[in-house]
């Protein structure tokens, strides 16, 4: 039986807009991986219909531990939209989320298109900038539990992101080992997680090749200017209203956001 992609995307979209958790899609009916990506793309189209725009992509399951936990051997890709972005030093509204979590990441920015149809071009050459980042993930599924295909359909739990100061990738790589920079996640001034950028695929720059591959497999455009969230450097921690969260990547910089609770509009 073929999944009703439109209906499933609408269900997830409704869950996200009303901050109401829903049962996993796969509880009802199994989805193939391709169908799951179709649901994701349809959901993004619904957002676009409301005036939102895609500004980049994110990878999931980039840590060995998380991949093993999910029983998967490859990364997954989701899409980031303009409305998910909060400013560095700004506020993210957790009132519009189900059960948000936050994690420290490394972000890249493209100066040129990654063209999935052109296998000759080195995708790494398209990257111009790098920054510390925070990602807010929020599964639309009950209890943050899902199968691989469920989470792909749910835009890999993408909900928010904050980008710290951009720096030229070449400058950073001449100063530090980006493949092994210490990462600290602080919540209200307390250390909530520590790790290394090595937790991201062994080297966060490997995310670029992975994005190029995913773009090829799942028909994603990754044009110049796109932001790439490479993956988490520590486990995610719950994000509650009122808390101030800061991520620092040694030698790269820091990024901070406050969790606010404006609640739903209308």
């Amino acid at each position: 039986m073929t999944a009703d992609v439109t209906a499933l995307a609408a269900r997830l979209d409704e869950a996200a807009r009303t901050a109401t958790a829903i049962p996993q899609l796969s509880d009802e009916q199994p989805l193939t991986l391709d169908e799951a990506y179709e649901v994701q793309h349809t959901g993004i189209a619904l957002r676009a219909g409301r005036g939102d725009t895609v500004v980049g992509v994110k990878l999931g399951f980039t840590s060995k531990a998380k991949a093993a936990q999910m029983g998967v051997s490859d990364v997954i890709v989701g899409q980031l939209t303009a409305s998910m972005r909060a400013e560095d030093g700004g506020t993210v509204d957790v009132g519009t989320m189900v059960h948000p979590r936050i994690e420290p990441e490394v972000a890249f920015r493209l100066g040129a298109d990654i063209d999935p149809q052109d296998p000759v071009v080195d995708p790494l050459a398209a990257v111009t900038d790098v920054a510390p980042a925070l990602e807010i993930i929020d599964s639309r599924y009950r209890d943050f539990r899902f199968s691989l295909h469920d989470v792909v359909a749910d835009d890999t739990s993408a909900a928010g992101f904050v980008i710290g100061p951009w720096r030229r990738l070449g400058d950073v790589r001449s100063e530090i080992d980006l493949a092994n920079a210490a990462v600290v996640l602080e919540v209200d001034g307390e250390v909530a997680g520590t790790g290394s950028t090595a937790a991201i695929l062994g080297d966060p720059l490997r995310a670029i090749e992975a994005v190029a591959r995913m773009a090829r497999q799942h028909s994603l455009g990754v044009p110049a200017g796109s932001i790439i969230l490479a993956g988490a450097a520590t486990a995610a921690v719950p994000l509650t209203a009122g808390s101030v969260v800061e991520a620092s990547v040694a030698g790269l910089g820091r990024v901070v956001v406050t969790a606010g609770k404006a609640g739903h509009d209308g």
């Binding site: 060995k64 080992d177 493949a179 092994n180 920079a181 210490a182 990462v183 600290v184 250390v191 520590t194 790790g195 290394s196 950028t197 090595a198 937790a199 062994g202 450097a233 040694a250 030698g251």
Partner: peptide, 20 residues
Amino acid sequence: PATGMAMEARGAVVSTGAGV
């Protein structure tokens, strides 16, 4: 405190951390 740590076995990362 800002020392990153990555430990690998058989080409795979088995532990990551930081001085802090």
